[in-house]
Amino acid sequence: MKLELININKSFSNKKILKDISFTINSGKAMGFLGRNGAGKTTTIRIIMDVFKADSGSITINDKPFLKKDYKIGYLPEEKGMYQKIPLLKQLVYFGELKGLSKKEAIEKGTEIINKMGLSEYLNKPLSMLSKGNQQKFFIAQSIINDPDILILDEPFGGLDPVNAQSLKDIIRDYIKKDKIVIFSSHQMSHVEEFCDDVTFIKDGKIVLSDNLNKLKKEMGKNKIKIKLIEDNEVEKLNIIKDILIKKENDYIIIECLNNKKTNDLLLEILNLKLNIEEFSNYVPNLETIFIKIEGDKNE
């Protein structure tokens, strides 16, 4: 399956919120949908969910118009909540039915997911009795009760301890394996990096970048090497090398070759300086660095 957003525009009260949004999401892969608060992520998701109609543009699935009613969708919003005083199974069955399951299916599936999430002791207890982390697990259960074709998760790891986070990771991996479309949005870049093959960056209602994450990392790491020196003060010695740009990133020194300088030549020059090098490798930026760079570039 290939879900494609083509030139989506949306305004509220004459304020343009989304500007020609276009990107593609393929099944069997997770797509990280990233952007700062207020960038337009939720509005885009709400348009996919058919909560809002786009002013212009279209959404297609396998090159045919996308109709929400024809697909099972699971959605976990960032700002979420459910009925605090109603027992878990009862409200899970309600949401399951709203998603198109029969009552019997909803009861079976709801019980199965609640057990899988380790919440079986709360099956018939109200949501208010659950801790924040367990409530988050229950919200996730709600999003997958209908075994969705398209799973949209916005900040799914909020409030989860490492053990529960691992369970959720297994669930997401399972969906990816099942050739489903998974859209993943989070400010915790390490989680996005862990799952997502593709990333799409949105800023001020515009898509600023949408590509394969590895390809992006390669491109952004091109002509750059990363070294770690045993003695920090030796970094000064690097200044005599011409056509390079030196940046510090945590304990590492990132050196970028400028003016068509080859990394092999740079390596020879560094070796000639006889520095005490602890680590040495090609530079592969992490997603956080890419995110900050993209946000920074667009601010400039």
Binding site: V51, K80, G81, Q142
Partner: peptide, 12 residues
């Protein structure tokens, strides 16, 4: 108030 609306409105 408790954001149940966000889930309801996206499901029906």
């Amino acid at each position: 108030n408790d954001r149940t609306m966000e889930l309801l409105i996206t499901n029906t």
